[in-house]
Design a protein around this nucleic acid. Sequence first.
DNA 1: GTGAAAGCGCTAACAG
DNA 2: CTGTTAGCGCTTTCAC
Lengths: 353, 353
Amino acid sequence: MAAPGRPRDDIPVNPPRLQDVAARAGVSTATVSRALSGNGQVSPRARARVQQAAQELGFVVSYHASSLASGRSRNIGVALPYVDRWYFSTVLEGVAGALMEAGYDLSLYNFEGDRYRETVLTDFLLRKRLDAAVAVSLQLDPAETEQLFSAGIPLVGVGGPLVGASTISIDDLDVGRRATEHLIGLGHRRIAHLGGAEEGRRYFPMSNDRRTGYEQAMTKAGLPIEPTWSLIADYTFTDAYQRAKNLLADPTDRPTAIFAASDEMAAGAILAARDLELTVPGDLSVIGIDAHPIGEAFGLTTIDQHARQQGVHAIRRLLQHLTGQNTEPTNEIVPANFVVRSSTGTPANPTAI
Amino acid sequence: MAAPGRPRDDIPVNPPRLQDVAARAGVSTATVSRALSGNGQVSPRARARVQQAAQELGFVVSYHASSLASGRSRNIGVALPYVDRWYFSTVLEGVAGALMEAGYDLSLYNFEGDRYRETVLTDFLLRKRLDAAVAVSLQLDPAETEQLFSAGIPLVGVGGPLVGASTISIDDLDVGRRATEHLIGLGHRRIAHLGGAEEGRRYFPMSNDRRTGYEQAMTKAGLPIEPTWSLIADYTFTDAYQRAKNLLADPTDRPTAIFAASDEMAAGAILAARDLELTVPGDLSVIGIDAHPIGEAFGLTTIDQHARQQGVHAIRRLLQHLTGQNTEPTNEIVPANFVVRSSTGTPANPTAI
DNA sequence: GTGAAAGCGCTAACAG
DNA sequence: CTGTTAGCGCTTTCAC
């Protein structure tokens, strides 16, 4: 494309290069580079002339050239299993905003579940164009982690453990416990759990922890954990709706409350209850986790996990690694807090079991 | 970082370079480049040796170096106003998948409404690291379009007009008309519209066209368009829920049907109706547009706009531009089809106006 | 504080 | 079909 071997003796109608700026400002390319990047010492006078010349020429650095020469690319990779699900897209919003503020580009790697997992993991390390990466809800086996680290790219994980890397997440166990205890405190004894599937054993470890928190709270309160009350849905509204409807349809064995691992599933459960002419919270209390906006219209009680903030914090942490400060892996827990609305209350007919 | 000026005389424990592969395979760097990239002629024998050497060394091309030398970066930019809204994240899924299949990287530029619009538009052209870009629901003024074009990056628009560029979208006017006519055909005469806001006059032109389609259908059928039945929400479930509830609360002036510009809003309207003890579709029919998965649980009748496919098609088109075939701007309309469920039906009490 | 110059790692004429 | 070689445009020593 560019014509190697042929000297460029024509007038530069092409994008201006550093050299053009240097010529116009009457300084060397080194000085222009220093003035524009802020690295190194430049006299105020030279700096001003350079800036003006760059301005007039409409100069912009070539990122490829800059990256090649410096070894840094101001580009961060983001890997996640889905982009069309609330938690992930919300984390992504946070990540994208923080990156934009910091002047970094964002390369998106969407696994589509497990579909492109290998491809992405390979591309990650290989194409040497990332300064660092953030992985959302990604489970890596030791070999994969090792590859990443030996490729020298700092990594931070969001919403799940990632051995050896810094992580940002909520305490899923604790959140599951608190949600359940909220229900127990209200007087419920027959409490069902609506959790997420594990999907290829790769993602959503959070779902398990939340379930464990539920079980711990139940056990601690001396309440039974009915296997039939342990539902698993695929994290979508509609699947949760269907599962909950099946559970609630039978009047002889019906819980008085449901703890759902996500707000979307919780909302689905509420709709299912309504379709069965059950009142919420009279006949059924429902609590979710997320603070998904849809919860407002449903009057859903939930625990806010500040998904967007998780993304923002991940970038903050990554940037620290990149600037060499605080390079030891850390595990940040972001606090999750209750948002109580109308979907939880005292059971109308507390039934002993 | 890399030490310019100092010859590299140490053993390359660092990532292997093209030269290392060339040495090991006993050929020149040019041949390695040709063998690995597939450009140019290479004898099967040389190719095999190169591939083996590259394999053994774990060689991967440096994208920065490759891009700098060739002028191509195998990287495509995607600009959109939001990533946490259904339409956009779904289009993005399609775009990401198609790009992955084609071996391209994806740089994400999220405007957050209008917030980073200028920044992104600037970065777009300037940092010369994109081969092309796709813009979702982005309104560009002539000056901006010109900038993009003169920067030489092919552009395709999704979900909206983009003068001078290829576009992929549905026929919003037609869709709005058909949705309304479905309702009219069922016997409805009092039909409200729940549309989206325009948000800074920059995005969502589709909303206007759908509304116009509604108005055309109403007028054509000789039906009145009540100003109070023209609702505007912010495209979210909860806002639509609230607006619809306010509208439906007054029994004296109540529509028998609502056409919502998106499924999320339609679902919000259904929930509002239920909260007011109105039956769907008995007291109120509701139709949306999208084929959003949430619609299933609500039994929502909708028009599928195949959002994911729009993304896939956009990339297909972009790749054509990039390979020099079919370089004239085209405007592709993707067909949208009805998905009839239980939220629309004959009005229980057809009221003449 | 500033300039000269040597690369960063790869691609693509060009000549054979 | 293959090797030589001149860059792509910028950053960063090193010496002044």
